[in-house]
Design a protein around this nucleic acid. Structure first.
Lengths: 179, 179
DNA sequence: GGTTTCATGTAACATGTTACATGATTCT
DNA sequence: AGAATCATGTAACATGTTACATGAAACC
């Protein structure tokens, strides 16, 4: 039986450090934005469910503010590690951009080149974002183990190699279309 | 107002050549499997809707068999070209594999390396699939315009560059983990 | 004659996104 | 004082997947 993947994303983040729903969202929007995405409409209900199941619990401190900080329990950690050692199935791809591109052979070449240039620009921005993060990471982030830093760095490397490949493809394709 | 993307995938495929729902599925599972995915539960109802809207129509021939072949109408072509010239929003990423990887810093390194090797193998299979398709395409596929062949080829190149980047990342990360 | 592939379809379910509501706190 | 960001949450909606049902045609 297949379980919701958001729960593992949340468990994984809480396993790094206790967080609020809002912190989790922020983490998804910045550090791991290149590999994962969550929205509030999913995070808060999932936190409730995980709490009921005993996988996470509210931290008793921080009672003064309206913030609700959760931490992972041993049960939750077990659940997380169980998922980590499962095989990952290949996920079906749905790239709207590439679909559009493939269907664009009847469009004026200038339009397609314009579209590719825009996309290339976005990939270049991505690349710079990753390079920036990598730089920060090399400066050293406090509160992070050497082992975790290694995995974070490898994840950023992935983003860098992927966006470089995209940029290369854009260039190749643009010059191919220009003859 | 946001419209379902499956309709454009289907319109785009029908714009290449008249097809049945089954043909569309086959096309998604082979030629464009690297960039798009559809399942029957989506294709058949969407075909119905598109027909009601006048974007596609049933071909009158082929009455003998139970096959239902659709062709795109001028109205459908307009709809398709409208979508093609719209800007494509960046889609949020959700890579289960990378999420797992990122959370694996507490796992025994051998396990992580094993996981990476498996993934690398899959990427190598992908790469070979694309190279195979590219080879076929260079042999020439009948019933395909030079312009369309160009776009198909560029799409395959994308798959090739992307899987190569993935393989490179796996190698880099494996040796990084081995010291 | 039996298995695989072709072919269409629906219902139930799972998942994901958006819009809205509310209000505190921090920054300018 | 006003704007931006922090913070939590729900309901409605949109989208996507799986399991099931049915049967013809092609292949071996």
């Amino acid at each position: 039986m297949m379980k919701n993947k958001s729960r593992y994303a949340i468990l994984g983040i809480l396993n790094i450090s206790p967080s609020t729903g809002y912190d989790i969202k922020k983490y998804c929007d910045t550090v791991i934005s290149g590999i994962w995405h969550e929205n509030f409409g999913h995070i808060y209900p999932t936190l409730k469910v995980l709490e009921q199941e005993g996988c996470i619990r509210q931290l008793s401190e921080d009672k003064e503010s309206r913030k609700i900080k959760y931490e992972i329990t041993n049960e939750g950690r077990e659940e997380l590690f169980g998922w980590l050692s499962e095989d990952t199935l290949i996920q079906p791809v749905r790239s709207e951009f590439m679909l559009k591109f493939l269907f664009s052979s009847q469009l004026p070449p200038e339009n397609v080149i314009e579209m590719l240039n825009q996309y290339k620009q976005r990939m270049e921005d991505e690349l710079n974002k990753y390079i920036g993060y990598e730089h920060e990471l090399l400066q050293g982030i406090p509160d992070i183990s050497a082992e975790r830093a290694r995995f974070l760095k490898a994840t950023l490397r992935r983003g860098i190699l992927t966006s470089k490949a995209s940029i290369e493809w854009c260039q190749e394709t643009i010059s191919e279309l220009k003859y």
